[in-house]
Computed example of a mutant assay.
Amino acid sequence: MAEGRFDGRVAVVTGGAAGFGKAVAQRLLADGAEVVLVDRDAEALAATAAELTEVRPVRAVRADVSQEADVAGYVAEALDAHGRIDAFFNNAGIEGRMAPMTELSIDDFDRVIAVNLRGVFLGLRDVLRVMKAQGGGAIVNTASMAGIRGSATFSPYVASKHGVIGLTRCAALEGAPFGIRVNTIAPGHIDTRMARDLTHQVDPDNPQAAYERAVARIPLARYGTAEEVANLATWLLSDEASYVSGATHLIDGALNA
Rank of each mutant, 00 (worst) to 15 (best):
A2Y: 15
I106E: 14
A247K: 08
A114Q: 07
A23P: 06
M101Q: 07
T142G: 04
T153N: 09
G96F: 02
G135D: 06
R125D: 00
G135R: 12
G188T: 01
M145R: 14
D86P: 10
G4Y: 10
T225M: 02
D80A: 15
A47P: 08
A159R: 12
V215C: 02
S242F: 01
R84P: 08
R149C: 03
E77R: 14
A195H: 15
A176F: 04
V229F: 00
G163S: 07
A143K: 07
V164R: 06
T142H: 07
A49F: 02
A186Y: 00
L128H: 04
H189E: 11
G147I: 00
V130R: 01
A230T: 00
L124T: 01
D126H: 15
S66L: 04
L122Q: 01
A230W: 04
D7Y: 10
A221G: 11
G136T: 07
L79V: 03
G96H: 02
G73M: 06
G119Q: 05
N116C: 01
E103D: 14
A49V: 01
G253Y: 02
H249V: 01
T234C: 08
D70M: 08
T48W: 00
G123L: 06
A138K: 12
Y243P: 08
E3S: 14
R125V: 01
I113K: 09
G15S: 05
M1F: 10
E174W: 02
T234V: 14
V36Y: 03
A17L: 05
D203R: 15
A172Q: 13
E3P: 13
R111F: 11
A30K: 14
L236G: 09
V36R: 11
I185S: 00
Y243V: 13
H82Y: 15
A47N: 13
A33Y: 03
G4I: 15
G15E: 02
R196H: 15
S155Y: 00
A25V: 07
G179H: 06
E240P: 15
F154A: 04
G123K: 07
A50P: 11
E3H: 15
G83C: 08
Q26N: 12
A226F: 09
M194S: 06
A23K: 10
L236Q: 07
L104C: 01
P57V: 03
D197I: 13
T168L: 05
E227V: 13
E43V: 12
R196Y: 04
L52M: 07
R27S: 07
V164G: 02
G135S: 08
